[in-house]
């Protein structure tokens, strides 16, 4: 379980997170949603120790982030974070060099499935291809948690379908996934929990199946209600 407790964060004098608390269990897909600039990405970066927080606590299975945690929790930023001159092969090598939990067989499998050329360079890839490689670098790791920032934004429909199919495959089985998106509609049947943010604050959080069972509402219905009031 990834647990945020009253997390506060500023950029200069601007408050970007004002007391965010939620829990993302293992074995579930949790979605952080909200309009752009409400702090979704900042939350993921804070969990990953890529930016400091100014209050509250973040724990992973009960303990704070440590550099060894990076083998249990992987982050997929919205852009592939590899140097432009590196080849696909170079990227795979970098990962297997540094991560003991790297799974080379799965990497090879996914390279084929996504039709990536080993000699293609990061800098000259299409957005869709870069998004797939970005995802591959996380999926080929045997990690407990996977954090994904806007996995569906700015890519073509075909790549989007391929990426969505990952969420219904064994690749996420037994893992805790946190993803951010401002477009819930296409993927709402894939989600377990939704955390809605507005201006660095949580406006509502719920389990999707519970709200369908109890209130007969879809996730989009709930979002509409919250943002229209």
């Amino acid at each position: 379980m990834i647990e945020l407790n009253n997390v506060k964060k500023r950029f200069g004098f601007r408050t970007v997170l004002s007391g965010v608390s939620f829990q993302a269990p293992k074995d579930a897909i949790t979605c952080l949603t909200g309009l752009n600039g409400t702090g979704k990405t900042t939350i993921l970066k804070s969990i990953m120790g890529l930016t400091p927080i100014h209050g509250g606590t973040i724990t992973i299975d009960g303990s704070p982030l440590h550099h060894t945690s990076y083998e249990r929790i992987v982050f997929v930023p919205d852009q592939l974070p590899m140097p432009g001159r590196m080849t696909v092969e170079g990227c795979l090598e970098f990962m297997s060099d540094h991560y003991r939990n790297w799974n080379p067989e799965r990497a090879a499998e996914l390279t084929q499935m996504f039709k990536l050329g080993l000699q293609d360079r990061v800098g000259s890839m299409s957005k869709g291809t870069a998004a797939k490689l970005n995802l591959l670098l996380a999926l080929a790791m045997n990690a407990d948690y996977m954090l994904m920032d806007e996995p569906f934004s700015g890519i073509d429909m075909f790549s989007r379908e391929q990426i969505a199919s990952v969420f219904s495959s064994e690749l996420v089985e037994g893992r805790g996934v946190i993803l951010t998106t401002h477009e819930v509609k296409e993927i709402e049947h894939l989600l377990d929990y939704v955390v809605m943010l507005d201006n660095g604050r949580i406006t509502k959080q719920f389990a999707c199946e519970d709200i369908r069972l109890a209130e007969g509402k879809s996730v989009v219905d709930v979002m509409r209600e919250v943002y229209e009031t």
Partner: peptide, 14 residues
């Protein structure tokens, strides 16, 4: 469960 999840395009937990 796995097969069902990918056939119906739902998450394996569901």
């Amino acid at each position: 469960r796995r097969e069902l999840a990918s056939q119906l395009n739902i998450n394996p937990n569901t």
